[in-house]
Structure formats: C-alpha cells, structure tokens
Design a protein around this nucleic acid. Sequence first.
DNA 1: CGATGTTCGTTTGTTCAACAAGCCAACAAT
DNA 2: ATTGTTGGCTTGTTGAACAAACGAACATCG
Lengths: 246, 246
Amino acid sequence: MFDRLEIVPAYRTVCEAIEKEIMTGRLGPGDQLPTETELAQQFGLTRHTVREGLRILEEGGLVGREAGRRLFVKQPHYAESAPRATRALIMQRVTFRELWEVSMSLEPAAADRAARHVTDADIKALEDNLAAMEKAFAEDRSIIALDIAFHTLVAEIGGNKALLLAREPISQLFYPALSRLFDHPGNRLTGPRRLIDAHRKIIEAMKLRDAVEAEAWMRRHIADFRRGYDHCGFDVDEPVAHREQD
Amino acid sequence: MFDRLEIVPAYRTVCEAIEKEIMTGRLGPGDQLPTETELAQQFGLTRHTVREGLRILEEGGLVGREAGRRLFVKQPHYAESAPRATRALIMQRVTFRELWEVSMSLEPAAADRAARHVTDADIKALEDNLAAMEKAFAEDRSIIALDIAFHTLVAEIGGNKALLLAREPISQLFYPALSRLFDHPGNRLTGPRRLIDAHRKIIEAMKLRDAVEAEAWMRRHIADFRRGYDHCGFDVDEPVAHREQD
DNA sequence: CGATGTTCGTTTGTTCAACAAGCCAACAAT
DNA sequence: ATTGTTGGCTTGTTGAACAAACGAACATCG
C-alpha cells in the first residue's frame, strides 16, 4: 500500500540544492560559492550541516577549492571519477578477461580516432613517452606507468570525452596485471621489449595518419597482451587485483 | 626547490584511513563500522570531523546505511558511479558523435557476450522488456527508459563487470538524444517502430545463441540510431544535453 | 494469544558557540 | 625592495548539548 518513506537528511538536501544550481547553469564553472556561513544562513541550517553537504559535492567533483580557500564550481574531470570506478571494479573482483575484452573493443577504436586527429605536438608527446620507456627499460626500471600513460595519451589525442571516461578506470587496472606479467621469469625482458616495439609501430602509423594501420597494430598489441598472460600460465578468469595489494 | 606542501584536512585523513581498512580487506563488505562516537575516540577527533569523512566515503559508495542506521561496508555498484560520470560528461558538453562512437564499440561486444551466456530466464526478461515496449508504443507513452533498460539488460547478461561500468554512464546519456529524436515529426512513429523491430531481431539471435547474428543486429541497430539522428538534420557534433534540461 | 502501547538505551542528525589557523591585502619598517 | 605587522575574512576543528529514529524488551488490553 504505502512505500517506505524516504527520510532525507538535511545535508543531502543541501547537496542536491547546490547541485541543481550547477546543473541548471545558474552556477557555472569558475563561479564562487557563497561562504559556508552565508550558505548556512540562506538554507536556515547550521554551518556544520552545510559542510557535510559540501563534502559530498567536493567528492563528486562538482566543486573544488585551492587549499583551504573558498569553494568554486568546477568541471568534473574524467580522471577524478576513475579512481572510484577502479575501486569498485577491484572490490567486485573484476577478472583479467573482463578488462581485456573491453580493452579489445576500446583501445583499437581509440587508436583509430587518434590517427585521424593527431597533431605534430601529439606525435612529439608519444615519442617522448616511447623514449622514456626505452630509457626505463635500459635502466631496469618499471615501464608500467609509462605504458598506461601511453594508452591514455592515445585516447586523449582522439579527443572523445566519452571514450576517455569509459576506458580510464579499466586502463588503471592493468597496473597489477602488467606487474604480474613482467615479474614472471620468462617475460622479464621479452615482455617489455614486445610492448615497446608495438608502441613504436603504433606511433609510426600515427605519423602517417594511417588510421587502419594504427588500429590494426593496437589490436595486435592488446591481443598480444593476453597471449603473454596465457603464456605465463595465468588464469584470465581470476581477479586481477587482490584487495590486499591495494 | 620546495614543492607546495599539501595540507590535508583531518576529515580527509579519516576518510583515507577507513578506505584503507576496506581496500586491504581488514574490513569487508557487510561489516559494520564502529559508531561515530567510537570512531571519534579512536581517531582522537571530534564527531563532526569524523562525520565529514564519513560523508565522503558514503558518496564514494564504499559504505552505506539503511535509513539512519549504523554504517556498514558495501560493495560499490556500477550503477552508483554512473550518475556522477554522466554529470561529468554533460558538463563537458559531450557530443552525440562521441557517445555514438563508443556505443558502436561497446554495444555489439555486449550483444556478442550476451548471446554466449544467455539463459532462459534472461530471454524471458528480454521478452518482457520487448512486450512492455510494444505496450508503451501502442499507448503512445515514451519507450526511452525501456530502450535504455534493454541495452543494460543485454550488458548484464554478458556479465562483464568492466563493460557494465564503462557503458552505463554513456547509455544514460542517450535519454536526451532519443527524446529529441522521437519528438521529431518524421520520427514520431517510424523511430520507435524500427527500434522495437531491431530489439526483436537481437532477441531472436539470442534465443538461437547465435553470437555473430546478435552482434551484427546490434551493430546495425546502433548504426541506425545515428542514421536517424542525421536524417532529422541534427548535428552530431553538438552537445547531447543542455545543462538547463538537467 | 495477538495486537497495540510504553519505555529505554543506542546511534545518528542537528544546533549553538567558540577558537585556531590559513589566506589576503594593506600598510609600516628596515 | 624586501621583510614584518596588522586585521579581516574564511575554513578547519572542538565541545557540549538536544532532537529524532531505531530496536528490543516489556507491559497492557482486547
């Protein structure tokens, strides 16, 4: 007969009220919010209740601040929602297969788009990344962060905001997977080598603005990733990250 | 010489401390958190400060509560991170083309996976959705929510958690796009008709466990969506949602 | 016996009043 | 010109308190 009544705490209402102002455009990116005291007066609440609402907005990326300074409206960036999504996937024990399958769809598409939009400055950034990777490899340092950065760079060059948002949390989760892979005795050297060579091929295709080749190389690169994983005897249906590792 | 010192407010430290307990597994899903007073004592802070940290965790989906009751550790669900991501895309003025491109990659993959994993109960759910859509169409009600639910259903059947997380925020954003499309005079009837027929084809392929067909029909279905958009004279490079519409 | 009050301890939601600390700008001092 | 100093504004934090919701145990009444 009756549904459960939803009792909404005041701090949540505060949060929604401000969010509404932002989403309807009455408050735009860059605008300053009133001070906590003013907000408290306007809402007819205590400063503390308002603060709890502000904390929620802040976490949501809709408002930000510069070190203890006044709050202002922000454009949420995909890199901020990614860690939360990554955490969610870890806690749900996402498997390598799941991540790989999605990457098999998204990464080639990103490469294709990137090849069509790439500028000379972008090429430079890609080559810098490649050089840094060669250097790290030669000095026996980890190339994992650079690899993930390379793929994010490719996606950024493509400029598709939805794609960036969709792939970022998944991309971040390859860290533990790559880490495992490169720790395996058989892959210690050949793994990074093959990876760097693949990146080089992709960059070459980009230089020629050859979207077909760029996509093809990216596809092979991702496929190769899985082959390496299988080859090491790892189970693709196991969670990539144990919660213990953080 | 020196970098800017990062002054971290106590409430943020609270949040990180608890998050760490969760991510390292010392606190697992279902576990109850200590009461606010206990936490305040343990951290050596005021209840207020602790509460602000808890609000952040709550928003992050790591902890939850049942109506004013004690907090417990939760498994974040992809449906909770989606609205935030959707907001971010809206504020960044994501275009139809961007959404469509990603969907062109993800939806066929989802259909393929679904066809390989589909159970009889899943088929039933899909057919129920189709029937509800036919009914809504016959009664001249909007089918948009049902359409979005259909695609989410397909993705859920596939069971790839990373895919679900990646596609959900994008899927939600088709609401305004479809809304525009079906409001267009030329599409008022033919639009929904074509859409429903496509869904039927996809379901038929699923029944046969024919992954190739399911993927092919899904691909045509998404491609058709864009054709419809172009056909109405809409600019695919315009933002799909104005902030004013919320 | 079962449905309805009553009471109580626990925990969260909210208020009020206050102080500490960081930031900013203006101004004084060397 | 750089370095103190001052003061006002705003956020971060504290403390004590009360209101409101919940759960459980128990009393009450038909």
